[in-house]
Amino acid sequence: MSIQSSNGLKSFRDILFIAAGFLVIMPVLGINRTTDFIIFSIFVMGFNILYGFMGRLSFGHMLYLGCGAYGMTLFTEHVSRNPFLAVIAGICAGVLVGAILGPIVVRTTGACFALINLAFNQIGYFLAVVAFSKYTGGEDGMSVSFSKFGFIDFSNKPFKFGFVLFCLLLTYYLLRKLTSSPYGVLIKSIKENETRVKFLGYNTFVYKWITFIISTALSAFAGALSMLNYGYVTPSFIDPSRAVEVIFAALIGGAGSLYGSIIGGVIYMAISNYLASYIPRWEMFLGFTLLIVVFRFRTGVWGYVSEKFNGRTKAMPVRTL
């Protein structure tokens, strides 16, 4: 009982902390950019649940982001302009794709898992941009517009910011609950040693499938939110060559930690948004940063910080030697 309530208190404190953090950087970066950063952090969390917690590196997660973005756009185009229904439709698109591809994808591990996701992302990109260009607008993309209800108006920037921040906090809270539950322990055990988990009598396939669907659903959620933010879908939302961005963000922040995901998301976005205007060779800088992270700081920024300060939220290295 006391552990339960202290856990609840901790997650409440974390939520306040995250909200305060974004409210502090909002005036510095500007409201548009901060909204963008928050959405990307949701995407990183969705990716991290698969990579950091279950130890499966996907090299084609843009597909699931794109599913959310395109699913939502097509929904507003053909069914309803209600923004909330459209976001739910986007998530449903992610869940559907995750449920269909899951049984094929989750049987594999390591490099095979990474590459099969990449293959599906390539196929998805082709379908969205070339094969169904009549419906998706192809290379040009298409715009989205939403109906307004009283104060719910997604062209109002502060409202959009508030809504997106609320979504981030909700996602964080749910994932926090999920990862500290027995289910969370189980998926971490699958990362450590799947054979042993099988010996204990668990059907690991089902758990891996469910985790995969959670990850795709959250990625689609982030995609749908970007549509709320930009109001315009382009092929770059499903472009497989951007799939590395989320990997970098997860790794820089600290794989296997929700805090780390948010920090990584913000750091990566800051590097790609600002560094490009100060350092002309920012890709090179990013490359060296990654090499240093891989060889020296495997637990990422958050892992390093939490180790230094008596490790309250321990970030786990993905797999050490």
Binding site: G55, L57, A111, A114, R319
Partner: peptide
């Protein structure tokens, strides 16, 4: 781990 190899 193969993940680090990919990223590096």
């Amino acid at each position: 781990s193969i993940d680090y190899a990919i990223i590096a």
